[in-house]
Design a protein around this nucleic acid. Sequence first.
DNA 1: ACGGTTCAGTGAACCGCTTCACAAGACAAA
DNA 2: TTTGTCTTGTGAAGCGGTTCACTGAACCGT
Lengths: 330, 330
Amino acid sequence: MPRKRATIREVAQATGLSPAAVSYALRGMQVSEETMERVRAAAAELGYEADPIARALASGRTNMIGLLCGSLEDLWQQSLAVGISRGLREKDRYALILDAVGDPARERALAQQLRDQRVDGMIVQPVDPAAPFWADLCESLPVVAIGDSLAGTAGEVVFDNRRGVSLALEHLHAMGHRRITVLTPTMTSTPDRPADVLVTSEADRLGLDIVVATAPHSLAAATEAAHRTLDADRPSAVFCFADSIAYGVYAAAAELGLSIPGDVSVMGYDNHPMSGLLTPGLTTVDWDIDGIVRAAVRLMSAAADGGARRRRVVQQPTLRERGSVGRAPK
Amino acid sequence: MPRKRATIREVAQATGLSPAAVSYALRGMQVSEETMERVRAAAAELGYEADPIARALASGRTNMIGLLCGSLEDLWQQSLAVGISRGLREKDRYALILDAVGDPARERALAQQLRDQRVDGMIVQPVDPAAPFWADLCESLPVVAIGDSLAGTAGEVVFDNRRGVSLALEHLHAMGHRRITVLTPTMTSTPDRPADVLVTSEADRLGLDIVVATAPHSLAAATEAAHRTLDADRPSAVFCFADSIAYGVYAAAAELGLSIPGDVSVMGYDNHPMSGLLTPGLTTVDWDIDGIVRAAVRLMSAAADGGARRRRVVQQPTLRERGSVGRAPK
DNA sequence: ACGGTTCAGTGAACCGCTTCACAAGACAAA
DNA sequence: TTTGTCTTGTGAAGCGGTTCACTGAACCGT
């Protein structure tokens, strides 16, 4: 039978102090060393543990941070979420992890729900960074954006995608590839996606002939999408804007009996741990995931503690060459 | 500027009713259709949204379910967590995901914290199912255990590990393997782990010569552990008690220049989506992850809504043969 | 000895919602 | 008409903390 928890008033009773004094003492403010000790002892004695709900109601702070992911079907984003969740826990906060599954409408709804839930702040990987609601959101609570910038006041851990795309396309170019299909993550109705623009302009610069298509993150769905790409007018290389999608290409290639990189080269983006295990290893653009996690957690903690809110960390990618990109056939 | 949220009193004011009536109306109890309509309209008008914190304090229910994972370094468990989180969200609950990283002490601490956080229930993958605190916990809130049974009142989605182990070892036996190393997930100080017992007894039955060792879930660490195993007195097959660990064996084998299954056969356990993508594909014991997710969510929802608490779902495994287990060399 | 600061601690009003006990009116049964 | 039951709705007391305004005492320099 779960004995009812002790309340602050009981501790007050036990020490002969007022509830207010106990409240202050437990948070180490405004009281003498001696009282503090007395309160601590009594609290320990009674097994007192402050109720986070009551505390949240009174103080307006919940110790929870919303983590709004772009799409948790992406293994890399899963790792990111797990890492951030762990990082926040170390700072004594809880992460409320939600998944927008690449849908801007859902993203909007979840952001709203998270705010209603009274989180102290939000870490988001915006699906639709241009959506207008971000500005309002950023005003009502600290927000840290990962990947893309957000209008309004927000911390940012942005990726130098320009450079990432360069790295990838330049390597493909150097290996002689000219006809390339780019597979970017499917998102419901986001117009003018920055990734597309970047890829197109970079391809132009290099004189590449590219086709942009989309593919979902989940292995089964990505495989299907890749299948269509490879079936049709086959390019000499496929550049996937997420390693998860590249996995789909591997699967499709296997089904079609195509060899990588013999028949088609594959370039990834992320460098998920599994990418090195495939045969051949996936050549990909590496983003230091630990660095991203640390930066996001640090920015969020600072912001939630009332510190600086506007702060920008830029992540630089590196090319991780493995075996999936070969010389283009003549 | 985030306009202050409307409170229930303002809605009461607007409709000329008492706060109590509004409270009831919004939850569809005890009031006439007409008032209900009136309240709804006023609420919509004012943009009223009930404050979950205040509600939680007053009612004692938070709409949050704690999800205590054994080790999120395991990709399969990551998938599980993501799935459950999504499933709970569909039932209008939030998941608070925590990671025990295979440490019973940490598991205990986190369970405690989750309870302090006032979650309505917990879904756990017990690291140490025999720990005594589970009984108390199960008494104070609904608990659904995944994988292992828990003493005390709790819903359970248990795996027929006996059968899973049989499936794996029998297959290895059938393929002629006699000297087998079993790699089970590392956990800090759990004595008499059920998995070990199971494996040992099953191996005895089949007349297998097994060595049990442990390996962590993370790829890097698992690789190192696998390295040690393969370096030493090499078995003809390795049975990994988690696909994540098998991935480490693949990596180690590659480093050592060993071929799978030529030099060593590998058997997994879980069937993570990536397992089919490796070369050769990982032969593994498949647990229907969607089924597990659905069952866990269903049991938890029912229990948290005050329904049946004791309920047991048993999952049956199937063998998924791919190419990583070959005939043992003579 | 005196006004002016600190310091430690108190009371009471919240925070915004739920819920219990009860009341008033409508309606049916006796 | 009286009594009893049902339906709607009300008032007020919580839930368990935090925080603001304030008091008394001690301490300070002059």
